[in-house]
């Protein structure tokens, strides 16, 4: 009797999660990942056919419309800056002292030879804005309980129409994502690790991207320092700041 009761409770909890809480889970994921603005330093490790290299950068991002990134190392990349305002992207390279506007078509090319395109990097709309979520099940992952969420695009202009997302049940942080093509083919996978608590949020600081259609070891993205809701001066998001 007692076991039945517990089972019923668990079942009830699960069902309620299905219907109502998938959206809630996603909202809480957004609460962890999205912010008014953020300032972070990161390392990106790209595994090439011959060698791997690591690029470090410092970024300022505000909502999903404005971001500014400055590359810190290696020497060849140092001082290169990228400014994104809405759908436009400018790149400044100190060696040429030029500000190049990257046309829409180029945004689909890979960033620095990684498995990420500029668009991938720039699209940081809140998940709840673009996806419907459904809980598909629960599982364990690296010793943590996770919900498996299926996300389906609400709007047409989304790069990946469907995602599977493994969300930590306690911390509301995705630990794994699979990005699918409209036709259902798996295109990219992301592993998210090293979750730390920053300013009351749980945040994965390591992400491993992999283009599933291509051979290769993927791209590792590690955040070494992140701060949310900072006062970012407005000039950062201006073309003038590129040349500074």
């Amino acid at each position: 009797m007692k076991t039945t009761f517990v089972t019923l409770i668990a079942l009830f909890a699960f069902i309620s999660l299905h219907s109502q809480d998938a959206a809630e889970i996603l909202r809480r994921v957004d609460a962890n990942l999205s912010s008014e603005n953020r300032v972070f330093e990161s390392e990106m490790t790209i595994h090439g056919k011959r060698s791997s290299r690591t690029i470090t950068s410092k970024s300022y991002a505000e909502g999903n419309s404005r971001s500014f990134t400055e590359y810190l190392s290696p020497a060849s990349e140092k001082g290169t800056k990228m400014l994104k305002l809405e759908k436009q992207l400018w790149i400044y390279s100190p060696s040429t002292d030029r500000t190049i506007q990257i046309s829409g078509h180029m945004l689909r090319q890979s960033v620095m030879g990684s498995d990420l395109s500029y668009e991938d990097m720039m699209d940081d709309r809140r998940l709840t804005e673009i996806y419907h979520a459904v809980v598909k099940g629960q599982a364990g992952m690296d010793g943590r309980g996770v919900w498996i969420l299926e996300l389906t695009a609400k709007t047409a202009d989304v790069a990946y129409q469907r995602q599977l997302m493994w969300v930590d049940r306690e911390r509301y942080v995705p630990l794994k994502q699979e990005l699918y093509a409209k036709g259902g083919k798996l295109l990219k996978s992301m592993e998210l690790k090293d979750v730390v608590q920053v300013q009351g949020r749980w945040f994965p600081t390591t992400m491993i991207y992999k283009d599933m259609l291509k051979q290769g070891k993927g791209t590792e993205f590690r955040i070494t320092n992140i701060k949310f809701d900072q006062k970012i001066p407005d000039y950062i998001f201006s073309k003038a700041s590129l040349k500074q």
Partner: peptide, 16 residues
């Protein structure tokens, strides 16, 4: 062979 493309809205699609 796998072919990947993007539709008019920019969404990725791929199929064999």
């Amino acid at each position: 062979v796998t072919l990947r493309w993007r539709d008019a809205a920019g969404t990725f699609d791929a199929t064999d």
